[in-house]
Design a protein around this nucleic acid. Sequence first.
DNA 1: AAATCGCATCGTACAGCGTACGAGTCAATC
DNA 2: GATTGACTCGTACGCTGTACGATGCGATTT
Lengths: 232, 232
Amino acid sequence: MAGKASGARGKRPQRPGAPRLSAEAQSGEPALSLERIVAAAVELLDAEGVDGLTMRKLADRVGAGAMSLYWHVDNKEAVFDLALDSVLEYREPPQAGESQDWRGEVLHMLEDWRASMLRHPWSAALLPRRALGPNILLRLELLGRTLSRAGVADADLNVALWSLWNHVMGATITRASFERSDDDLAAAQQRLTGLSERYPTIERSRLLLDNDWDGTFRDGLDFLLDGLAPKR
Amino acid sequence: MAGKASGARGKRPQRPGAPRLSAEAQSGEPALSLERIVAAAVELLDAEGVDGLTMRKLADRVGAGAMSLYWHVDNKEAVFDLALDSVLEYREPPQAGESQDWRGEVLHMLEDWRASMLRHPWSAALLPRRALGPNILLRLELLGRTLSRAGVADADLNVALWSLWNHVMGATITRASFERSDDDLAAAQQRLTGLSERYPTIERSRLLLDNDWDGTFRDGLDFLLDGLAPKR
DNA sequence: AAATCGCATCGTACAGCGTACGAGTCAATC
DNA sequence: GATTGACTCGTACGCTGTACGATGCGATTT
């Protein structure tokens, strides 16, 4: 039990007074911190994907030794948790909670949610294996409040929340899995057209090829809200 | 270019005539084969999860050396692909395609889909990162045919297919992410109740605690189909 | 009978991984 | 001046995926 607590770590304390400049670059980098680690992790994930994130590369990116990360972070899993949640930060628009247009509000929230995840495609792949961080919970909370104001009641609220969440998750994952490299995409298309006689309906609908993902998402959301609306 | 093709591998040929018994256990194991490898991979994933699958452990389980697997399989990623698709095999019920009850058919298909994935929780975590295998495509195809017979037209068919798919994927992933070990679950609950004043709506709805997942899935599906029905 | 060939198996080796451990530096405190 | 606690990091260990080449074996050809 030398220098670390159980759940969180050393967690650099608020600066006692001096800005803490060590022997290293005293004008460049603002010293190692949890925030910088998480930001670098997001960059690295954006650049190289889930498998591209290693503790050594992450340390390089913040100009530190690999083991220095472990003062600020429990382990690699925690890095994933933090990066994922940081990408899902949500800024509630100022007029929220007053408008009568609950449907418009829900739409905006979910579009923003989806856009945030598509901006970082690895987030879709990561989410199924991670716990729900505070930013995800906040988004669910605000969505729940809006639906509640719209008159959706107890059991229906539960179903509505999960259904909308499912729509966003499913759509994001689907979309992200189609954003592979061009090589993979070309190979996949060739593989599909080869089997087109076995899957004629899929072929005819061009479901997998030149899909309008944004439109499909919005239209599906409309159907869902249409089904939800009578219940309120 | 010694002994392997590019896409698929050596792929043991159809037995020339003799049952191929080598020096090893001549009565026990039916010799190494792609089928046995995939079956063992599913077992291992069921038992130890995604991170628990290593090529050495997999080889142990089929009683072979680690490198022997690579004759039958390109690499570890291919093992994941094969295991995932094998778990999603679908047996079409015999009377399919004749009933008038398209809604019942859709419900049955999607319940089965979800059940198959929940039986192997790792499949939900794996799916976002893997390509769509033939069994997934078959399920989509059959779903598309049913909707088509129900009168869902071009653009609507596309939206309907993806929306239903999204519902299954989202619900499965959500559900699977709540099936952690009891330790994790207890910790999560404590963490949540601690923050309950920040997320009152979520708290009140008991969204995350004792949810009736099966019911929520079915009810959400009903809402979705309610929204879809007028369009046919 | 002998040589050849293709399929299939596996031992060894290597680079890279997450991270345990303990030594080191430096500012603040006593 | 001595001590403490926050923080950094070099080294090392066990484990990973898999490249490479050696080996064995049944069938085919000579």
